[in-house]
């Protein structure tokens, strides 16, 4: 099954372009000839059941995993050869990552601001804290925060350098519905205002429908379909994205 549609943003500059990425771990093909683009200002989703190859794909796009074959260009630069320049403009947040627990939130954010070479770390930390509504948490240790609060701090970390490409692996997995809703609004607002690109994975179909301009659906290491939520529902002849997911997962 291979039903891939044309890119939804043909006129826009591609921030991220991945061509024919492949990755095997021993006998297992984790990612098989995956090609995708994310355009300037676009919020793209990467969906699929567990083991579909989403996280491996994201990790290849971040340089954490080296592809066996294929090519990754971000801002027109080859990721392998221009790692520092590229990663300076990219950021990442994932529900499975942690932060140094003994540090206060402001110390964590200050350290990461410096890792991105920011000239005025304290000012940026204050601004991003206001954006994420974590001002009252700044002087608390990370280890003392709830998982939802830690997620917001992770997201604050991910916005410090005002990334032109923001990659999020299940960004709202640990948040309650209210906090999740507010974070989704914030991320959409940030993408629109900053004009950057965003690539997210999520198992929350409503979140993906609401946030994403375009969705890449993965299964068995391949992208089997690309389109808007409505286009995918039409393509699979079901009512919505949730049913697309169930149909693919059970095939």
């Amino acid at each position: 099954m291979r039903r891939v549609r044309a890119p939804a943003h043909p006129g826009r500059v591609a921030i991220l372009q991945a061509d024919l990425l492949a990755k095997r771990f021993g006998p297992v093909t984790a990612v098989d000839e995956v090609s995708l683009t994310v355009a300037e200002g676009e919020i793209a989703g990467l969906l699929g059941p567990n083991g579909a190859g989403k996280s491996t794909t994201l990790h290849m796009l971040l340089g954490l995993v080296t592809p066996d074959s294929g090519r990754i260009r971000i801002f027109g630069l080859d990721l392998e050869r221009h790692r520092t320049e590229v990663l300076n403009q990219v950021n990442f947040s994932a529900s499975y990552l942690g932060l140094p627990g003994v540090l206060q939130v402001r110390e964590v954010l200050d350290a990461f601001a410096r890792l991105y070479g920011l000239r005025r770390p304290a000012v940026t930390v204050a601004e991003v804290a206001e954006l994420l509504e974590i001002g009252p948490l700044l002087r608390r240790k990370v280890i003392d925060l709830s998982s939802g609060q830690q997620t917001r701090v992770q997201l604050a970390k991910a916005l410090l350098n005002r990334p032109k490409l923001l990659i999020l692996d299940e960004p709202t997995a640990a948040l309650d519905p209210d906090a999740g809703d507010r974070i989704r609004n914030l991320l959409v607002g940030v993408a629109r205002e900053w004009g950057g690109a965003m690539l997210i994975t999520s198992h929350n179909m409503r979140e993906v429908e609401r946030m994403c301009d375009r969705i890449h659906f993965m299964s068995g290491g391949r992208i089997i379909a690309t389109g808007t939520a409505a286009e995918l529902a039409d393509l699979f002849d079901v009512a919505d994205l949730e049913e697309v997911f169930l149909k693919v997962a059970r095939q």
Binding site: E85, L115, N161
Partner: peptide, 27 residues
């Protein structure tokens, strides 16, 4: 939100990144 950063390959950016690791560990 405004952010200004040193060019990523500049000596200032490199010093800032190394300093970031040191300050984190000191904290």
């Amino acid at each position: 939100m405004t952010t200004t950063a040193f060019p990523p390959l500049s000596a200032a950016a490199r010093r800032r990144r190394i300093g970031g690791v040191v300050r984190r560990d000191l904290a």
